[in-house]
Design a protein around this nucleic acid. Sequence first.
DNA 1: ACACGATTCGTTTTT
DNA 2: CGAATCGTGT
Length: 802
Amino acid sequence: MFPQSDAPAAADLPILAGLNAEQRAAVTLPPEHALILAGAGSGKTRVLTTRIAWLLQTGQVSPGGVLAVTFTNKAAKEMVARLTAMLPLNVRGMWIGTFHGLCNRFLRAHHKLAGLPQAFQILDTQDQLSAIKRLCKQFQVDEERYPPKQLQWFIAGCKEDGLRPGDVEVRDAEIRRKVEIYQLYEDQCQREGVVDFGELMLRSYELLRDHDAVREHYRRRFRHVLIDEFQDTNRLQYAWIKIIAGLPAEGGGGAIMAVGDDDQSIYAFRGARVGNMADFVREFHVGHQIKLEQNYRSHSNILDSANQLISHNRRRLGKNLRTDAGAGEPVRVYEAPTDFAEAEWVVEELRQLVKGEGYERKEVAILYRSNAQSRVIETQLFNAGVPYRVYGGLRFFERAEVKHALAYLRLLENPRDDTSFLRVVNFPPRGIGARSIEQLQDAARAAGIALVDAVASLPGRAGANLSAFVAKVDVLREQTAGQTLREIIEAMLDASGLLEHYRADKDGADRVENLQELVNAAESFVTQEGFGRDAVALPLDETAEPTHGLTQSPVSQGLDPEAPLLDVLLPRAPLPVDVDTGETLSPLAAFLTHAALEAGDNQAQAGQDAVQLMTVHASKGLEFDAVFITGLEEGLFPHENSMSDHDGLEEERRLMYVAITRARKRLYLSHAQTRLLHGQTRYNLRSRFLEELPEEALKWITPRHGGFASIAPVSSTAHARPAWGHGAIDAQSLVGAPLPVRKTEPAHGGIRVGLQVFHNKFGEGRVLAVEGSGDDARAQVSFPRHGVKWLALAVAKLTIVD
DNA sequence: ACACGATTCGTTTTT
DNA sequence: CGAATCGTGT
């Protein structure tokens, strides 16, 4: 019997076509909590979006019942795009967005309960730091003992752990002081009506925690909660999910589908907790765990390398990628004498790739562990005239001139925004010096008021200048009332003198351009968000049937859980809306929010066929035909700061795993014997990660010329591991390996690789390499205190330690 | 107020 | 080495 044509069996829906068994299983899981372990290149986003589409199409949920959370705007946009392509359905009723974006909307809607002005502004990391610096000056915090950067880290860390100042365990005087400053910072933010990124999350969490009606409403509403990149969630984000979905013990709520990959967890340094995955399984009694192990990206030599490498990590949930693609080409490994030569080699190889083998430049990525490493490569590329693009500089909304402009705009919205006030009070310069500002700050602090409000109390010419500034902003505010966003910004650029200032600067052309670009950004914001046409009406989504028996009643009924919050909080609605009053944000305030939450692309020179340069971190989620991973050296990758502890090393290994799995067809790995770092020449051992790859998948392409013998790896007990993948470490495999291991030469006074030696000045150390002969014989020795040195055996008096 | 030397300090980063 | 910040001098 065939299923009715108008009601196809759920398993036969066209959206499911082309999915493999694992993917299909994940997509069609029953509405229970589930964890999807999605390996690199396993079609994770596809599963996520198809899951949503499937739930909708089979009538298991209405758009309003879906909550899908991502980390980046890019991921959120992609999800929306794919979903709209898949279904004729309007996605408007769904909550799809980043953690911060959704929290932002939520807080605007419930701003009264959250204790915030509806038009609160968002501090980015820069703003936060300057706010802290300002506070430190004001309260005479010793910036030597408490560097603002560290305070910022402390505060952000507390919030990520869900801790308010009162919750922090005060263990010593230093922490006590930090907590005091944390409290002062909080007071300051509250007074000025601004929130930082952590605050967006924490306030939302607390609001849900403290207001039963609100919490219950959302719990009832969201039948399905989907989380992308779950391994990157921090404590607070997981707590947020728990409270919005409801733990089983608390009566439960929506079904959670957490999608993640513990092997790609590379953000522990900023609070990400892989442990959330295990906690989730335990706390939600997760019954369904599905592994997506079929990889659609890479050839098997590449995949085998990734698998072999990551198998050296102890703490894993366990997963092995497989592919139907053939072995492909071997992974090429190159050892260069210097970082300079390494870069030369990359450029040469790249040229071959593009000219000889028809690779597109933009399909080639050059990866490195830290940004500083890009310089040498850039120089080489530049000299060779190869177009390239570096990811990860300043983004559009972070540029100084744009931030200045935004500060003026913020003052129009909220004159009490002291951060913005200070940013532009004397920019462009208008004769308001540090002295005047200090006076003003003193006055404001004494009276407990905002800087603008203290201006009137200042006498003399200082007061006059300041008053002129305030008046200027006030006039602009009145003038632009009711104008379109574009008109407001143009008026601001003119009245503030910003445009004029940069036009007068002979080097200001770029900045002028960026300011004009700001107008365009605003314009496209207006178009995209679509509130030029619909004004501020609250369009109900016709396709979204209320599933929970919500009756439509006036918005002003407020927090009755049965009230149509659903209708108010549509994420694609023009502007966030106050649930009590129906008030919306001004387009300007909305644009400012957008600017804070979405820092914009890097200077995207899209269209250009350029090689992509980026850190390994930045490469996560991307893929390329060919990938170079450079600087594979001990101390660099793995980074020295991460080498001391086991967890740090495992994260570095995951980072390497991410890097390897970016490559589709071809992978190059390289390291340099010598590298200029901090102005000093460093001799680095090659990375242990190279030794953790399957030798049969590798091909060493280093030309064997005499002078630069490579350094035999020294297996120490510090990291217990099978050095060559299979089996234990044995001399046989070391010698037989296809690595250009230099055979130790007979007579060097008995100095051989691996020996422990003693030096008069440097103490005990281990011999890493020996080369040359006779009077030229040298040994590379690693000393715990003094680092790695090359020593001339004829001069240095080395004795062998037993 | 600004310019210039002296200094310090160097992972990874999204929102 | 090179940037980013700091302090002094004019």
